[in-house]
Simulated scan of single mutants.
Amino acid sequence: MKIAILSDIHANIWALQAVLADIKRQGADLIVNAGDILSSPLAPAATADLLMSLGLPTIAGNHERQLLSCAAKAGHPTDQFAFENTTQAQRDWIKGLPGTLAVAEDVYMCHGTPASDLIYFLEEVDQHGCRMARQTQIEAYAAGLSQTLIICGHSHKPRSCAVSGGRLVVNPGSVGLQAYDDDQPWFHVIENGSPHARYAMCEKDMHGWRVDHHCIGYDHHKAAAEAAKNGRDDWARWLLTGRAAS
């Protein structure tokens, strides 16, 4: 089985199209989407239309939940923009997405951890910043999962980590956003160092799961210009550079 893993698209239609084209060239038995799909100052409606037409196995991330909550109360600017620039049918599609998914007998997908869409699976954050999580912490998050391929997203950091029982946890990185800062639970930054779209290809053979992390060029200048047009110079900088600071 050859699985292409997408996550954290954040309505970057240009990056998504480039990644899908690369997957088509390589071939995959299945494409899956690990959430955080539409929230951004970019192209939420166009991204939703494309993904809805593909019918990929897809889960909701924290931003899907936050986007939907904008119906009751104004939310974070990226969620609010996506809420205001999507149709009711698109929001109904988001509402119907599960939080976790057993994609196949041997594949499990969550956005953050199995228990929370807000916690990084493979990173930990404290007052000193963000770094790869301790093995004991990763093992604790993976406890109770029998699948040998565990997919996560949320942190935008491409990583693979072996855990007990011959299992592998894979974060494909972000299709749509290669840097950001956050103040929860402490202030930290995520930087991948270039604007390239990220995704992962996983293939199972007699030795277990093989993972290839892919870094794909696309018209990131167009994405950055759209962010700037919509009043988000921070996003424009992140999209142009893959770094959180100028």
Rank of each mutant, 00 (worst) to 15 (best):
Y120R: 00
Q178T: 07
F121S: 01
R167S: 07
M132V: 01
R159L: 15
G193F: 08
P158I: 04
G153R: 03
L168H: 10
F121W: 03
G193W: 14
D126K: 00
A133E: 00
Y180Q: 09
H128E: 06
A142M: 07
Y120K: 00
C130H: 02
A133P: 01
L118D: 13
L118P: 02
A133Q: 00
Y120W: 07
G166R: 12
V125S: 01
Q178M: 13
L149P: 09
A200W: 01
K157W: 01
T136G: 09
E124L: 00
H156K: 13
A140P: 05
A115R: 12
Q184R: 11
P172M: 07
Q135W: 09
W186D: 10
V170C: 15
R134S: 07
G165W: 08
V125H: 00
V125L: 01
H196S: 06
S160F: 09
C202A: 15
Q137C: 04
V189H: 06
P114I: 06
C202H: 06
L122C: 08
P158K: 05
Q184L: 14
A200K: 02
L145R: 08
I119N: 00
D117C: 08
E203G: 04
A115K: 11
A143F: 11
I151W: 10
K157Y: 03
L177T: 06
H196V: 12
I150C: 10
C152D: 11
I150G: 04
Q178D: 07
D183H: 10
C161V: 15
D183Y: 08
L145E: 10
P114Y: 05
I151L: 15
V125Y: 00
L118Y: 12
A140Q: 14
S160R: 13
G166H: 13
R159H: 10
R134I: 00
C202P: 04
Q184I: 11
L177N: 12
D117Y: 05
S116G: 07
